[in-house]
Design a protein around this nucleic acid. Structure first.
Length: 299
DNA sequence: CTTGCTGAGC
């Protein structure tokens, strides 16, 4: 038999608290939800890190990031389980309202209390620093992350590539990527860099990386070459697009026929009929096109 | 029922 006395049956327990807290949260009554957490921890009931995170994220969404930080600190003081995800949410909140110094300060807190930041935490801050053009600090932080044995994810790679290209820090990027690749390989890095450089209009830097990509000559690498060719073509430099195509053929990587056709027409317009013909002849040699009329045999 | 990126804003 369960021994429940008359006076005790209504006393809130862990489940009651959790249900009521979710109710407040669903209705957007965040302050009330936080108060309830304070009350329940006082009685020895603790919310899970997942529940804490829901409140933290909602507070951050309302730009009440300082409140979120304070609330998280209270949870810690009261003995709740607070995890890396919770810290990352608060850091992300500060990044979104452009308070990078506060974000970095929360990151410092993590080291102090031995909650080690993970790759997501670092990526969040690296992106925010990069967005502001604080590339040297981003580099330092990335190195620190690697030094701590963390593995860069595909998001980390995309983030670093985007931000460094955005601020035209190609040399720094390439140095950093070398270090990252030692820890975690990523087959498409250099294709990604080439495409990003094309996005930002730095075709010279993109061209210099072609060798890295042609060595491997996979599908994504071919695509990066196509992006570069198309960038040259649109910029009115079909000769450079032609050079890229030739280097692809040299590596036995067949460029896109329709794109080459457009490049060839561009060359014709500039009176470079010789190169225009040579480009299409590559396809004839490989049986992709019939010799007399430049017509597609197969795609 | 947990965390990160890719241009904002017209």
């Amino acid at each position: 038999m369960i021994n429940t006395s008359e006076e005790e049956w209504w006393i809130p327990n862990a489940i009651t608290y959790s249900v009521v807290m979710h109710g407040f949260w669903r209705e957007g009554k965040l302050s009330e939800a936080c108060d309830l957490v304070r009350e329940m921890t006082g009685k020895g009931f603790f919310p899970t890190p997942v529940e804490i995170n829901l409140l933290l994220q909602s507070l951050c969404q309302e730009r009440r990031v300082k409140d979120a930080r304070k609330f998280m600190q209270e949870c810690l003081n009261n003995g709740c389980a607070v995890n890396v995800v919770n810290f990352t949410s608060v850091i992300h909140g500060f990044c979104k309202i452009d308070d990078l110094d506060a974000a970095l300060s929360v990151l410092d807190d993590m080291y102090l209390i031995n909650k080690h930041p993970d790759a997501v935490t670092y990526t969040t801050v690296i992106d925010a620093l990069g967005k502001k053009g604080r590339i040297d600090e981003a580099t330092e932080l990335t190195s620190k992350m690697l030094h701590r044995g963390l593995v860069p994810t595909s998001v980390t790679y995309r983030t670093v590539i985007h931000r460094y290209c955005q601020h035209d820090r190609v040399e720094d990027l390439l140095k950093l990527l070398e270090k990252m690749l030692l820890r975690q390989s990523c087959n498409t890095v250099y294709s990604q860099v080439i495409e990003k450089l094309c996005n930002f209009g730095n075709l010279d830097a993109a061209y210099k990386l072609l060798g890295k990509v042609l060595r491997r000559a996979s599908r994504s690498d071919a695509n990066a070459c196509h992006v570069l060719m198309e960038s040259y073509r649109r910029k009115g430099i079909p000769q450079s697009a032609y050079k890229v195509a030739c280097r692809m053929f040299n590596r036995n990587l067949i460029p896109d026929l329709k794109l080459c056709d457009k490049v060839s027409k561009g060359l014709m317009l500039e009176g470079k009929t010789d190169e225009a013909d040579k480009l299409m002849l590559h396809f004839v040699d490989r049986g992709r096109i019939s010799p007399h009329h430049h017509r597609l045999v197969q795609t």
